[in-house]
């Protein structure tokens, strides 16, 4: 399959590969996909007290476009507020990377991963506030 230059660039030089401490209060972790389907993404965000995403990291098991989609997603969410990040659309990722139709699900997975990470962070925050009350 012939991928766009952008996919190849993200695949060969993936941004923000790595892991954050998933136990930390200010870190939200999203793990989506399934090994049996051939792709699993783990996307993590570190959120400041102002609600701005300070850092994002990912690890992905999947094809080239899955890796590129998650790499791009981490790049985009950094510096955004949680609300802004939650508005990230898979179609934007697919369009930016010029994904072929059979690879659209990779961008959907990246969107899911971002949302799952945000939810995880919010759940932690809610728990913390509840404990403080």
């Amino acid at each position: 399959m012939a991928y766009s230059d952008k996919v190849i660039d993200h695949y060969e030089n993936p941004r923000n590969v790595g892991a954050l401490d998933k136990g930390a209060e200010d870190v939200g972790t999203g793990l989506v996909g399934a090994p049996a389907c051939g792709d699993v993404m783990k996307l993590q965000i570190k959120v400041g007290s102002d609600g701005v995403i300070q850092d994002a990291k990912f690890k992905t098991f999947g094809c080239g476009s899955a890796i590129a989609s998650s790499s791009l997603a981490t790049e985009w969410v950094k510096g955004k507020t949680l609300d802004e990040a939650a508005k990230l659309k898979n179609t934007d990722i697919a369009q930016h990377l010029s994904l072929p139709p059979v690879k659209i699900h990779c961008s959907v997975l990246a969107e899911d991963a971002v949302k799952a990470a945000i939810e995880d962070y919010k759940a932690k925050l809610a728990k913390k506030q509840k404990a403080a009350d």
Binding site: P14, A19, V40, K42, F58, K59, T60, F61, I67
Partner: peptide, 8 residues
């Protein structure tokens, strides 16, 4: 593998 969540 270094970038695979499954490998971790």
């Amino acid at each position: 593998r270094d970038m695979s969540p499954l490998w971790d």
